[in-house]
Lab assay of single mutants.
Amino acid sequence: MAEQVALSRTQVCGILREELFQGDAFHQSDTHIFIIMGASGDLAKKKIYPTIWWLFRDGLLPENTFIVGYARSRLTVADIRKQSEPFFKATPEEKLKLEDFFARNSYVAGQYDDAASYQRLNSHMNALHLGSQANRLFYLALPPTVYEAVTKNIHESCMSQIGWNRIIVEKPFGRDLQSSDRLSNHISSLFREDQIYRIDHYLGKEMVQNLMVLRFANRIFGPIWNRDNIACVILTFKEPFGTEGRGGYFDEFGIIRDVMQNHLLQMLCLVAMEKPASTNSDDVRDEKVKVLKCISEVQANNVVLGQYVGNPDGEGEATKGYLDDPTVPRGSTTATFAAVVLYVENERWDGVPFILRCGKALNERKAEVRLQFHDVAGDIFHQQCKRNELVIRVQPNEAVYTKMMTKKPGMFFNPEESELDLTYGNRYKNVKLPDAYERLILDVFCGSQMHFVRSDELREAWRIFTPLLHQIELEKPKPIPYIYGSRGPTEADELMKRVGFQYEGTYKWVNP
């Protein structure tokens, strides 16, 4: 592979701008107003304001973009700056750019259920340069409990009458099928589907988006991507930290609602779906819905739930269990780990287990898709061969690698495990991989909904998990304890083995 010439960040961002501006969906010269509902909250200060700053800094926003914060707290732009700027990672050389960014910011205080507050917000936006005809993007960085009041008031008082209007809704989209349907029906009564952007930030990850290209742009994968060759698929999300004093919020939802029903299920769809007619948003989402419709409700015998306990040999936070978090209700049975087996009941995947695993306070930070292939028929190497695996590593250190057998150097035919490896950090030294939120917010500006969740996708996802969630809430089974920093409950490994996964433990990928 030829040595790549190092590029400056300015040059890299210039390439990104060229890609972005050559499309006809990006209205570079139009006025846009980006409204952050819930501007005083954690999500706004840690993710949304920093993301908008990065896009502005790199010249990736339309030229005439204004940012308006809205929340109940009586704040000023200076207050917003004070709480969000520490997350910007701005350099001293960017000081003038930073001043320009905050000059485009404003803030309006108001209630979430008060019509007069929204009329005041609308008047404020109209007073901005060309504000009355601007395109408006409303980001709901809010708890779902206020979605209905907020969307109703936005629709009645704050819509642009000339430009387009788009609304970005953060997960969780309800707690179960019934609450999700209620919320979807409410929002759909106010906005068209092409105006609604239900954001799952995992769909903005580079390697998640790469799944489609790997599958449908490489001839070698087509013939082997089926039940005849693939023994099982494992989708993993692991965090090495616990709730760390923020367990009160987590306890309301648990690990299945927080990660599995959305992030992991979306990745499953991209692995299992048929080739779409095109890369058009609805063509892709149509195929994802077909996959979900082929999955039956989760069966309790295919589920393992766990909850982390303190590690007596650990240090600091590792010595504390979930129930030691003062914000967690006493005696909570909320799971911090889950392993679930699903089956896609169609011709391509009949009988292939899709194993979804996620948890907190585990032994490493990792998100990946792992396809394990069947054993080689007619073994001539005296059971020395391990199964081939194709691994798409989402985070950290984005990579695609194939675990395969090669001859060990020497005189004899002794096979050993090795890999074919594409590590993004080595291959793409001159490429700026956008943060997931950067990519998705740019998608909203461009009107691309491919990486957002459609209402029928959402409904099918909740259909699969709601009976299990209701059973857990009714019966309150005690989750299996696992030690902070471990791989999780051993019962999860036993479940995976029972459905056909072979864990060798003899080879570990190392970032080159």
Rank of each mutant, 00 (worst) to 15 (best):
T10F: 15
V12R: 15
C13G: 12
G14W: 13
G14R: 15
G14E: 15
I15V: 12
L16N: 15
E19R: 15
E19N: 15
Q22T: 14
Q22C: 15
G23D: 15
D30A: 09
I36C: 04
M37C: 13
D42K: 02
A44Q: 03
A44Y: 03
K45E: 05
K47D: 01
K47R: 08
Y49V: 05
T51V: 10
W53A: 00
W54D: 07
F56Q: 04
D58G: 06
D58L: 10
D58Y: 12
G59P: 01
L60V: 10
L60D: 02
F66L: 12
V68L: 08
Y70I: 07
Y70Q: 07
A71K: 04
R72C: 01
S73G: 06
R74N: 15
R74E: 15
T76C: 11
V77C: 12
R81T: 07
K82V: 14
S84Q: 10
S84W: 07
F88A: 04
F88Y: 08
K89C: 11
K89P: 05
A90I: 12
P92V: 09
P92C: 14
E93S: 10
K95V: 08
L96A: 13
L96Y: 14
L96M: 11
L98Q: 06
L98R: 04
L98E: 05
E99A: 09
D100C: 10
F101C: 03
F101Y: 06
A103S: 15
N105D: 00
S106A: 11
V108Y: 09
V108S: 07
V108H: 11
G110M: 02
Q111A: 12
Q111T: 15
Y112I: 02
D114P: 07
A116G: 12
S117Q: 08
N122P: 00
N122M: 13
S123V: 15
H124K: 11
M125G: 06
A127K: 13
L128P: 09
H129C: 13
H129M: 15
L130I: 15
L130A: 14
G131L: 08
G131N: 15
S132E: 13
Q133G: 08
A134G: 11
L137Y: 09
Y139V: 05
L142H: 03
P144L: 02
P144S: 06
T145Y: 06
V150S: 12
V150D: 04
T151A: 11
I154N: 04
E156L: 12
C158Y: 04
C158G: 10
C158H: 01
M159Y: 10
I167G: 01
E170S: 02
E170P: 01
P172S: 00
F173A: 05
G174E: 04
D176L: 00
L177F: 09
Q178A: 14
S179I: 03
S179K: 02
S180K: 00
S180M: 01
D181L: 08
R182K: 15
L183N: 01
L183D: 02
H186I: 09
I187W: 03
I187K: 01
S188F: 04
S189I: 07
F191P: 02
F191E: 03
R192H: 11
R192N: 14
E193G: 00
D194N: 13
Q195P: 01
Q195W: 06
R198E: 04
R198A: 04
I199N: 07
G204S: 05
G204F: 00
E206F: 09
M207H: 03
Q209D: 05
Q209V: 06
M212G: 03
V213G: 05
L214C: 07
R215Y: 03
F216T: 02
A217G: 15
R219M: 08
R219Q: 08
I220S: 05
F221V: 08
F221E: 00
I224D: 06
I224H: 06
W225D: 01
N226D: 11
R227D: 05
C232F: 01
V233P: 05
V233G: 03
V233N: 02
E244Y: 11
G245D: 07
R246G: 04
R246F: 05
Y249H: 04
F250A: 05
E252S: 10
E252C: 09
G254P: 03
I255Q: 05
I255W: 02
